[in-house]
Structure formats: structure tokens, C-alpha cells
Design a protein around this nucleic acid. Structure first.
Lengths: 228, 228
DNA sequence: GTGCGCAATATTGTATACAATAATGTGTGC
DNA sequence: GCACACATTATTGTATACAATATTGCGCAC
């Protein structure tokens, strides 16, 4: 399973590549990320792989278990709630700022993003659609010109993708594109109040679409799953 | 310059040790953090040191320049503003949650923290006082029982310490202990409204105590400093 | 004497070798 | 036949060796 050796992989680019794979659900929660295996796949040494895994563990996308290895993270119900509480603090106000600083180019980018997501859904590329949907949120922070907050939101979005993989309830296609359309309209009107409120509701809808009853919690360990 | 070989250093413990040194202004902005030097100091190999430096760079406390090395970060004026904007979004609401969930033990911890800070100031240990002052903020997030937000705030607090090192205006002793006292009172009353408002004002006071006119921006490079 | 280019040096970037640890398979004793 | 201890194996943790790069010092040409 060799990759095309076109690229000169660095720990950062490997981390980005893995993050996208996780975000798109190509690497589902709990997947073992063996160092040798990844090194072979990318054609690099374990040193670089380890640095990439370290990066992802800081973003809570990968869990490092000492002497056990790296695994795609499995956010707990508790963590899922926390991620959306953090998003609720950061994103609505950031959406307001973005609306107030909106430019034509930024609007066009967001519009294109929504179209891409539709295209991905039509092509049954659900992973890619999910990634694009997340990118919409990150882009808002970029438009708001808040790099620091953007970094936080970017991490939270990626973690949300894991949460969706574990706790998504409605199996129907992601019906949230409506929310993004509504946000786009508010942005076009440079209406900060609406943007903030729409984002707030959008996040509430997202949480509501999850099954966060502790019952459904996936087992971290077999022992736990079997109550032994 | 050997350290006591008492501890078995890991990349995480080294990172934590360095972060505290940075937070306490024992390692000022722009300090070169040579890998060999650190390895000798801690009695470990460059491998572990590199992992620690990587961790700190993710927290934006260290800047890694390719083929140049690691340096204690020098947040720009822009970044300084962003850090406090992020704190303004996260901390007031978190203080409210903490007030609503306050317990006797948590109150005692916060009270002790303020006393420790006073003691440090009396002993002229300004760095330690600054660290304790930051710990007060992080502890609030812990009391609010929001691990994810706590991680963000913890990073922002450490970065704030660098910002204070670069842009602090009032050279008088940190007079902010009053603000922490007032917060403590609100917490004791479990008064979420007051706690949120006090935290909001506290952060505004902090920003106001900084000199964030672009004039005072420290030079990233000599070239820039000399306009050449 | 000044400026440019090259060589020397120091430091980081990457790969690999070895050590430590955990998981697993096997054998022996009861 | 079962349980426990030990050996084996696989994988990660750490150190070191080598390669690549940037900086610095020196010498030569003009």
C-alpha cells in the first residue's frame, strides 16, 4: 500500500493528511495507527510519523496510549457535550464579526463551498461533504480575521466529525445545508445579529441531531463493554 | 548546568517544566532553545527535547523556525489582541458556570491561590505570582467542569504571560488581585451574573493595562527593527 | 579596502539501531 | 483439563548516527 512518492512529506503535511482522512471518516474512531504501517504508507521513517501523531494527539484527534500505540480518538459523550459547549461560546460571536467584515470574495468562497458540498452529496461522497461542511465554519473564523479563534474552531470542527461518526442519529443525508444557506443570506446582508442567532441555532440543531444518551456510549475497552 | 537527575523526564514533563519557566518569565520571549543545550540540561536526548518543543509550539509558546531552531514566542500586537478576544469569549461565561457549580473545596482552593499570590508578591517573586494569577483563571474552568474549554484557556493564559512580558505598561506590582478577590466573593455567593460581569471587566482591565499601540511592537527580526 | 564567493562550522532534520514494555503463545505442574 | 509462569513476538520509547541546511569566517579578486 504505497502512496505516490510525488510529495516530500513533512510531519505537518502528514498530520494534515491524516486529519483530513479522519475528518472525512476514512479513518473511523478507534482505528489503530501503527507507526511502521504509516511510515511504509507515506514512505517516511517512524520519526516523522511520530511527530505527526503527536500533533494530532494535541488536537485530540488521536489518542496516544503509552507503549500501546496511537488510535483515532473516540470522544466520550461527556467530551462531545464539551466540544459543542465550546463551539457555542466561540462560533456565534465569531459569525457576527464575520458578517460585519464580509467582503464579496469571502461571500463567493462560502457560496462555492456550499455548492461543492451539494455536489459531494450528489456524488455520494459523504465524507467529503462532511469535510466541506466543516470548512464552512472554519472559513467564517478566517473571515472574521481571528486566527487564534480560528485555530480553536478548526480543532473543534475536526473533533465534531469524530463525534458525528460516533453519535449521529439521523441517518438521512445531512440536512444542515439549509442552515448554511440561511447564514450565507445573513452574511450577504452583513447582518451580524441574524448571523449570530442563526449560528447559535445551527449549533443547537447539530447537538439535537446527536444521540448523547450515555447508553449508546461506545466501549473504550472490552472489559467495560462486557461489564467485567 | 546539570539538573538533578531525580526525575525521569518525559517529553510531556519537560514541556510542562519549560511552559512554567516561560509562564514565570524565567525564559523571556525570543530566548533560543537549543536542542543540545536542553538535552544536556535535562539529561535526555534531543529526541525527547524535540517532542517537548513540538508540544510547546502547538501551544504557541515556542516558535519553530525550520533549520533555525526553537525560540520562546514573541506574540505580535495583533496576536495579543486576538488572545484577549478569545479569552473574552470563553472566560466570562465559564466564570458564570463555575459560580453556579461552586463547592466549598473549590472556594478554598481559590482562596489559597490568592493568598499564595500575595505571599509571592511579598517575597518579590513576581514570576511565581504571575503564574499563580494565571492558575486562578484556569482553575475556574476546571471548577466549571469544562475540560475542553479549560485546555483552551490554559493555553491562552500562558500566551498572555508572554504578552505581559512584552507589552505590560504599568510597572507597578500587579494590582489585579482586587479583581480576583471580587470574583471570589461572587463565587462564594454563587452569583453567576456577577461572576460573568466581573470576569468581563477584569479582562478589559487587563487589556487596558497593556500597551498595544503598534509602535511598541518588538522586532521579529533585526532587519525589521531597523527598517532595512 | 571592499565586496563577493567559497569553505568551515554549528545546528537542525531524518533515519536507523537498540532498549523497554506489553501482548500473546506455549509448556509444565497439579 | 485448567491455571499459572515463562518465553516469544511485536510494537513503542529513546538514543545516536548521518544528512541537509543555515550561518559565519576567511580569502581572493578587483
Amino acid at each position: 500500500m504505497d502512496t505516490i512518492k510525488t510529495q516530500q512529506w513533512t510531519s505537518d503535511s502528514v498530520a494534515a493528511d491524516l486529519e483530513r482522512a479522519i475528518h472525512e471518516h476514512r479513518l473511523p474512531p478507534a482505528t489503530k495507527l501503527g507507526e511502521d504501517e504509516l511510515g511504509d504508507a507515506y514512505g517516511i521513517s517512524r520519526t516523522t510519523v511520530r511527530a505527526a501523531l503527536h500533533t494530532l494527539s494535541h488536537r485530540r484527534l488521536v489518542e496516544l496510549k503509552r507503549n500501546r500505540g496511537a488510535f483515532v480518538a473516540q470522544p466520550s459523550v461527556r467530551e462531545a457535550r464539551e466540544v459543542f459547549e465550546a463551539r457555542a461560546l466561540l462560533e456565534p460571536r465569531t459569525a457576527r464579526s464575520a458578517a460585519e467584515r464580509m467582503t464579496g470574495a469571502a461571500l463567493a468562497f462560502l457560496r462555492a463551498n456550499i455548492e461543492d458540498e451539494h455536489a459531494a452529496l450528489d456524488a455520494n461522497e459523504n465524507g467529503r461533504a462532511l469535510f466541506l461542511s466543516g470548512q464552512f465554519h472554519v472559513e467564517i473564523a478566517r473571515i472574521a480575521d481571528q486566527t487564534t479563534i480560528e485555530t480553536f474552531i478548526s480543532e473543534l470542527i475536526s473533533r465534531s466529525s469524530l463525534i458525528i461518526a460516533l453519535y449521529w442519529r439521523r441517518r438521512a443525508a445531512l440536512c444542515e445545508t439549509q442552515a448554511h444557506h440561511a447564514l450565507l443570506d445573513a452574511f450577504a446582508r452583513r447582518d451580524g445579529d441574524s448571523a449570530e442567532q442563526l449560528m447559535k441555532n445551527h449549533l443547537l440543531d447539530l447537538v439535537a441531531s446527536l444521540d448523547l444518551r450515555n447508553v449508546a456510549q461506545p466501549a473504550t475497552s472490552l472489559r467495560e463493554a462486557l461489564n467485567r
